[in-house]
Simulated scan of single mutants.
Amino acid sequence: MRDQLDRFISHLSNERKLSANTTSAYRTDLEQFNQFVVDRGKTAWEQLDRDDVIAFLIFLKERRYATSTLARRTAAVKSFSTYLHAQGTIPVDPTVDLDSPRVDRSPPRSITVNVVDDLLELPLASSGPEALRDKAMLELLYATGMRVSELVALDAADVDLGGECVRCGGAAKSRVLPIGGSTVTALEEYSDIARPQLARGNRQAESALFLNHRGKRLTRQGFWLILKRYAEK
């Protein structure tokens, strides 16, 4: 059963071109579904039926998962079931006409310019290369509106300080974003002073623009931990 699950995840990544974050979420949700079905005595996906799917959704609701989590896991199960049916593994898709929980999305709360200004200045209250790195990251995010995943994926070569622009988005959806003023200054200070220290003088250091304290590419999770720390100050 795990082999078919692995093939489905590969299908999402290689054929549907879903992001690594999305495929990771699918894997987590479907591994829980897989274990639930096994616990019900099923030994192959050919035995999957609508009762298994309904029982799984009831199981999730009884554990009081958030509506957004229920909706995501329902979508994962439906997508996997559709895949199994298309592959001829099951004769009938047991999720046909199965409704997903409705997620009420509240509008995001905006923050004032003063709060943003305070956040941009928080790294300067500390010293060391990490402070200059954090200042550069926050300035770049604020100036361009790029995604965090795009920020941490940047290589040093993607930044053109002389031309006051940065290239992001990868080869398929690459775009050039203008930068200037305090953003250029922050990036210059980080690139000239802090990044060499974080790279620890290693000539084979990461090509990544933003490095962690081990000289490796900063991850998306690492960035959110940094931002959370500043938000709590």
Score class of each variant (00 low, 15 high):
residue 206 E to H: 09
residue 158 D to S: 14
residue 196 P to L: 11
residue 55 A to K: 11
residue 36 F to I: 01
residue 74 T to Y: 08
residue 121 E to G: 01
residue 164 E to I: 05
residue 36 F to D: 09
residue 88 G to E: 05
residue 174 S to N: 01
residue 74 T to C: 14
residue 81 S to H: 02
residue 54 I to F: 07
residue 115 V to I: 10
residue 173 K to T: 05
residue 223 F to S: 01
residue 195 R to C: 05
residue 47 Q to R: 12
residue 167 R to F: 03
residue 207 S to V: 05
residue 139 E to Q: 15
residue 155 D to K: 09
residue 30 L to P: 05
residue 158 D to T: 01
residue 229 R to T: 08
residue 130 E to G: 04
residue 232 E to H: 13
residue 43 T to W: 00
residue 69 T to V: 02
residue 157 A to S: 13
residue 156 A to T: 11
residue 106 S to F: 06
residue 25 A to T: 09
residue 29 D to F: 06
residue 90 I to T: 03
residue 196 P to C: 07
residue 3 D to I: 01
residue 219 T to K: 11
residue 105 R to H: 12
residue 205 A to P: 06
residue 100 S to H: 04
residue 111 I to E: 04
residue 2 R to M: 03
residue 202 N to G: 00
residue 203 R to A: 12
residue 90 I to L: 03
residue 142 Y to I: 09
residue 159 V to Y: 07
residue 168 C to M: 04
residue 87 Q to S: 10
residue 230 Y to E: 01
residue 165 C to G: 05
residue 21 N to P: 04
residue 58 I to P: 00
residue 107 P to M: 14
residue 45 W to F: 09
residue 40 R to V: 01
residue 97 D to V: 12
residue 176 V to I: 15
residue 228 K to H: 13
residue 130 E to I: 13
residue 217 R to A: 12
residue 28 T to Y: 07
residue 75 A to Q: 08
residue 63 R to C: 06
residue 83 Y to C: 00
residue 209 L to P: 04
residue 93 D to H: 06
residue 146 M to D: 00
residue 102 R to D: 00
residue 142 Y to E: 10
residue 106 S to V: 08
residue 57 L to K: 05
residue 41 G to I: 05
residue 193 I to Q: 14
residue 227 L to C: 09
residue 154 L to P: 00
residue 225 L to A: 14
residue 73 R to K: 14
residue 147 R to Q: 06
residue 84 L to H: 03
residue 21 N to C: 02
residue 197 Q to Y: 01
residue 27 R to Y: 02
residue 10 S to M: 11
residue 99 D to P: 00
residue 195 R to G: 07
residue 103 V to T: 14
residue 122 L to V: 11
residue 24 S to R: 13
residue 124 L to C: 04
residue 48 L to C: 07
residue 15 E to W: 08
residue 52 D to R: 05
residue 203 R to N: 06
residue 68 S to G: 00
residue 177 L to V: 05
residue 35 Q to M: 08
residue 94 P to L: 12
residue 172 A to G: 07
residue 180 G to F: 11
residue 72 R to L: 02
residue 123 P to N: 12
residue 101 P to M: 09
residue 33 F to E: 05
residue 73 R to N: 03
residue 108 P to S: 09
residue 47 Q to F: 02
residue 134 D to G: 01
residue 79 S to A: 14
residue 128 G to K: 13
residue 45 W to M: 05
residue 155 D to G: 10
residue 146 M to V: 03
residue 71 A to E: 10
residue 219 T to G: 13
residue 6 D to K: 13
residue 61 K to W: 00
residue 58 I to E: 13
residue 210 F to Y: 04
residue 175 R to L: 09
residue 62 E to D: 15
residue 71 A to V: 01
